[in-house]
Design a protein around this nucleic acid. Structure first.
Length: 219
DNA sequence: CTCCAGGACAAGC
DNA sequence: GCTTGTCATGGA
């Protein structure tokens, strides 16, 4: 079977640098990681645009919950996500909204702390760890499961089992994990969208022929 | 009309 | 421990 590192090499060679996460500031990235939960990024962008200059910790903490919910409405689950933004931002306030201060923490301890926050699950935590806090954890999302399943790997249902399986086959590098995840998303957007066009798929994975309803058993 | 998209949580068994 | 219901908009 194709070594995991080779999958990265193929994708990187084909798509090049992805320059993730698409955000102007660490806090915007953190907000985006919550808004994008089970949601199309296009809708998240609409929500971020609605927030505009209000996309800062002090506004999120002080604005009325209902008003915040209305502003992030396009991202879906807006009532839940408004609450989650406030809860997360309250946690961030302990560190004076300073990512560098958070970064000084031990990686495993920080992950546990993020997971203790209501509304932050494993995938969102690992996104934050990689893209805002510079800690090496490989992000497992639906796209990652779909891709590796299609390539013939046995995909553990348990999140951490799958994460550790991949991490064990790669150098523990923030930059590598950062780029790999971005490439997987990019690959799915190009080849696994509604209209299949995988004639030149760099992995020859044909993942675009799999509908989500066909692979629910691996999610 | 139906199905999907960078999930997470709580209740039920 | 695993399964199911809930949350919700916008685009294809």
């Amino acid at each position: 079977m194709l070594p995991i590192k080779n999958i990265f090499d193929h994708l990187y060679q084909y798509y090049g640098e992805q320059h993730w996460w698409p955000a102007d500031s660490p806090y915007e990235m953190l907000v985006g990681s919550i808004l994008t939960q089970n949601t199309n990024w296009q809708n998240v962008e609409k929500a971020l645009t609605n927030l505009g200059d209000n996309l800062n910790p002090n506004y999120i903490l002080n604005v009325a919950l209902f008003e915040l919910a209305q502003q992030i409405r396009p991202s879906g689950y807006y009532n839940q996500k408004a609450e989650r933004l406030k809860i997360f931002t309250s946690w961030f306030a302990r560190y004076h909204f300073d990512p560098d201060t958070v970064q000084q923490m031990d990686a495993d301890q920080l992950r546990l702390e993020l997971l203790s926050i209501k509304g932050i699950g494993k995938e969102t935590a690992d996104c934050m760890l990689i893209y805002a806090f510079n800690k090496p954890f490989f992000i497992i999302d639906a796209y990652t499961r779909r891709l590796f399943h299609r390539l013939g790997y046995h995909v553990p249902l348990n999140y951490d089992n799958f994460r550790i399986l991949i991490e064990s086959q790669l150098p523990r590098s923030v930059q590598l994990f950062n780029e790999f995840h971005a490439l997987i998303i990019k690959h799915n957007k190009v080849f696994c969208s509604a209209k299949p066009k995988c004639h030149h798929c760099p992995l020859d994975s044909m993942c675009c022929f799999l509908k989500k309803s066909d692979i629910n058993h691996i999610l």
